[in-house]
């Protein structure tokens, strides 16, 4: 890699990460607005998540005397992990940093962010934080095997664990991409997206009721800019998980060329796909009540089995 190519890549990485950071709150706002309209409420403005984040940034923060440096570091670290993950995922063209890391690293970056969020939940010493942490890890343990297997199913078909390679190969093979394995994997990841984005029926993102909350419980002690970073990171994670699922399983529009027209078309496709999945998430959230915590294993097991069948369908029975 020459010096200028390297420079161009860095520039591209900055643009893509900036794009994800800017778009993420909008997706959150879109889901909220859609839900409100469907419930015949006016709801908050589409741009409300941006206002919230900006407002929290400008406020001072209250820090608990019982907490340690873990709680102080966590918001920055979680934000850093999510922003780094944003550079690894192909959105509408090749991912700027995919040459350097693959999907295992991508998933483990989420893992690192999760570990620190959970530690911060325990750090406050309150029962709410511990409860959120405990439940978060339970969901994480249930999600992990299925998620890895779905991604490995795609990786095995494409012959690489590199996300750019996988998506390029899928998008270039047209309708032939839709093998039984592909559809099974798509079904599996649909379940996992709900869990990973912390939405109903797994977690309720709109509540602070101790009986139902998972993710929000861990953030209870945060305020000011720490809260802003955590909320923003949550939005980024949601967008990244949606993008991962949608680009792996509906790969069209992701272009390998650097011409402006395909990139613009790709961008348009990408936005449509993401908003489509976001709308679907919102709809599911309106129609389904929260599942009991101990019913989740069955829910997640179905994702694991779908993923398992996806690999079997393509790699074993051929």
């Amino acid at each position: 890699m020459g010096f200028f190519e390297g420079l161009a890549r860095i520039g591209f990485a900055i643009i893509q990460i900036g794009f994800v950071l800017a778009l993420a709150p909008l997706v959150q706002g879109f889901i909220k607005t859609l839900k409100a309209r469907r419930q015949f409420r006016l709801g908050p403005a589409l741009w409300q998540p941006y206002y919230d984040i900006l407002k929290y940034f400008s406020r001072g923060e209250v820090v608990s005397e019982h907490t340690s440096w873990i709680s102080r570091v966590t918001p920055y670290l979680v934000f850093g992990c999510m922003a780094a993950a944003a550079g690894l995922l192909p959105l509408f063209t090749q991912a700027p940093l995919a040459f350097a890391a693959d999907l295992i690293f991508f998933v483990y970056l989420f893992g690192l962010a999760r570990v620190f969020t959970v530690l911060a939940g325990l750090d406050s010493g309150s029962a709410f934080g511990g409860m959120g942490s405990s439940r978060e890890m339970m969901v994480a343990v249930l999600v992990e095997p299925g998620l890895m297997l779905v991604l490995f199913a795609a990786a095995l078909r494409a012959g690489s664990t590199n996300l750019s390679d996988i998506i390029t190969r899928f998008s270039s093979s047209g309708f032939n991409t839709f093998t039984p394995s592909h559809l099974l994997g798509a079904a599996g990841i649909a379940i996992l997206v709900v869990a990973e984005t912390g939405r109903l029926p797994v977690d309720n993102p709109d509540t602070h009721l101790e009986l139902t909350m998972i993710h929000e419980g861990m953030l209870l002690e945060y305020s000011g800019r720490s809260l802003a970073l955590m909320l923003w990171a949550t939005n980024i994670k949601q967008l990244l998980i949606i993008s991962l699922a949608v680009n792996l399983f509906v790969p069209w529009g992701v272009t390998a060329s650097l011409e402006p027209v395909p990139i613009l078309v790709g961008l348009l496709f990408y936005l449509l796909k993401v908003l489509g999945v976001a709308a679907a998430l919102g709809l599911v959230e309106m129609l389904r009540p929260k599942v009991r915590l101990f019913k989740l294993p069955v829910f997640m097991l179905s994702a694991f089995i779908l993923a398992f069948l996806a690999v079997i369908a393509d790699n074993v029975v051929r």
Partner: peptide
């Protein structure tokens, strides 16, 4: 976005 951080100490 937020300028210098103002931090108040309180309990959980």
């Amino acid at each position: 976005l937020g300028g210098k951080n103002r931090r108040a100490i309180d309990e959980t």
